[in-house]
Write a protein that binds this DNA or RNA. Sequence first.
DNA 1: CTTACAACTGAAATTGAATATCAAAAGCAT
DNA 2: ATGCTTTTGATATTCAATTTCAGTTGTAAG
Lengths: 143, 143
Amino acid sequence: MILEKKKMFNDFSASKGLRSTRQRDIILDIFLSTHQHVSVEELYLKIKSSNPGIGHATVYRTLKLFTEAGLAREILLHDGQTRYEHVVKGEHHDHLVCTGCNSIIEFEDETIEKLQEEVAARHGFLIKNHKMEIYGLCANCRR
Amino acid sequence: MILEKKKMFNDFSASKGLRSTRQRDIILDIFLSTHQHVSVEELYLKIKSSNPGIGHATVYRTLKLFTEAGLAREILLHDGQTRYEHVVKGEHHDHLVCTGCNSIIEFEDETIEKLQEEVAARHGFLIKNHKMEIYGLCANCRR
DNA sequence: CTTACAACTGAAATTGAATATCAAAAGCAT
DNA sequence: ATGCTTTTGATATTCAATTTCAGTTGTAAG
């Protein structure tokens, strides 16, 4: 699966005439090794610890490339930190965000996805992607 | 409906021991007179034109209060501008966001809402609110 | 009505994420 | 190796949003 993603990025790079660089390889490796929903800062620090040379801007730029390449997705929560999650082909999940402890639970619901398609069709709308976040309290924080 | 919202805010203010000020009244009036999805900047300018004295910070602060009071809701799109939409009690709508022309189409779907409740229940999660945005191309931009 | 005090405001400063700039470095086709 | 172009990273910049703080205003009590 990791190899598959690397291939995805190589293909994307080739199709866009982008070059293969040490930095992008490292950032991709580390991104793929992180949990879901890494904030840019978090990823940057992780990268920095093993590769002090890599700059802030490069991490931002590269994450945008990953997004374009279809292997990451930007998610905006309400804390002013942009996060990136891993895109798994043919799979989409949404989020339960706990406002108590900031934990994120993922879920998938095919019926919801289908209904979204229907709504879009009704408006002549062509879906590129979507996101859904449900805010509230997780089981732990309810007590 | 406008009166109802003003009452909501008065009740909220009273319960929180907040004071009633000229600025808050004005900002509420103008907020209620705007279309859905006003960006803070847009609202600020509108306010400024009839009430030059009112400051940036006050608009931000007051919109946060409206959100707490339950009559506005923050929405984050991907353009770095926080927007506020009007909350209508007992009604929830979601958004089709056109990446071509930035227009926003609202929709409601009760079945989706129900499914969300089910998902949440399955995880022992207590829903406070949620948002769903579907990105893509509107009927116009598809041509 | 006055007083007293806490809440509120607004100008300005500050923060912090994200982007732009640009000279130096590194890929890559020839 | 050469020459051209992309990429990088330090730095500066941008811009939304928040904080600060002295002055103002609402309001409850006297």
